[in-house]
Simulated assay, not measured.
Amino acid sequence: MKCTVCGSESCEILKSKGKTSKELLLKCNKCGNIFRETVEVEKPVDVRVVVSEYESSHKTLVKLYPDEFLEFEGVLDLDGRPAQITSIENKRGGRVMVSPVSEIDTIWATYIDTPARVGISVDYGGRILSRKVQVDREFEFTIGDVVKLGDVIFKIRAMKTQDRKMRKGFAKAFVIKRVYGRPGDDLKRYQYDLTSKIFKLDGVETDEER
């Protein structure tokens, strides 16, 4: 929208009315000119969302405007529940950090009204100790961290997120599916203790397959 007097695109909306088309009363921030302009409003479209809650996931649709932009870690309202975007796939099959809705094929998200659950596998040379911990969604795991888990102290060697396998760097708990580690006799000091975070169901520790 350009000012009808000076052509500036810096304008303030004073009033707006209408549904399928909006009649706007605008004020130019540069010269102060007040003018009217009518714009057509695009209808919202259905976008596919795969939303996860712990081990289960389901597909749903969310109505969004084509010119709206979504980004990684943004929040959507899905059937009255807040869900954080964990991945965006565009119509060319690529995973992107930000995209206009018109170019999105699928959104992956996870509900954020519950803590994150992260699987942990500690490799004892072929014998795997498998546990699941429940932590704050923003908790960060970093490759190389030394962690205490019950009687075990291990170093994180890799992580699997919803998009990829990581062997360096860090990631937040809400995008991590599994953390892989190895114990060591030389590991005495650790960055954090997750013993109290081991997820229990009916008083029994939950194991899971590799």
Rank of each mutant, 00 (worst) to 15 (best):
T161S: 04
T161A: 01
T161E: 00
T161N: 02
T161C: 03
Q162D: 12
Q162W: 10
Q162Y: 14
Q162I: 15
Q162C: 15
D163S: 13
D163L: 07
D163N: 09
R164V: 08
R164T: 11
R164P: 04
R164Q: 11
R164A: 09
K165R: 15
K165W: 15
K165H: 15
K165Y: 15
K165G: 13
M166P: 00
M166N: 01
M166C: 02
M166Y: 01
R167H: 12
R167V: 11
R167T: 14
K168G: 08
K168P: 04
K168F: 09
K168M: 08
G169S: 04
G169K: 04
F170D: 10
F170R: 14
F170H: 14
F170P: 06
A171L: 03
A171V: 01
A171H: 03
A171D: 02
K172M: 06
K172N: 05
K172A: 04
A173P: 00
A173R: 00
F174I: 09
F174N: 07
F174D: 06
F174K: 05
V175P: 01
V175G: 00
I176A: 01
I176K: 01
I176L: 06
I176Y: 00
I176P: 00
K177A: 08
K177V: 14
K177C: 09
K177D: 11
R178L: 10
R178M: 12
R178G: 05
R178K: 12
V179E: 00
V179M: 04
V179S: 01
V179A: 03
V179I: 15
V179P: 00
Y180S: 05
Y180M: 06
Y180H: 07
Y180I: 08
Y180W: 09
Y180P: 00
Y180R: 07
G181E: 01
G181N: 02
G181K: 03
R182E: 10
R182Q: 12
R182K: 15
P183Q: 08
G184I: 05
G184Y: 09
D185A: 12
D185T: 14
D185Y: 11
D186L: 13
D186I: 13
D186E: 14
L187D: 10
L187Y: 15
L187Q: 07
L187C: 10
L187I: 06
K188W: 12
K188R: 13
K188D: 15
R189M: 12
R189W: 13
R189A: 09
R189F: 13
Y190P: 03
Y190N: 07
Y190T: 06
Y190W: 11
Y190H: 12
Y190A: 05
Y190D: 06
Y190K: 06
Q191S: 14
Q191D: 15
Q191N: 12
Q191M: 11
Q191T: 13
Q191C: 09
Q191W: 08
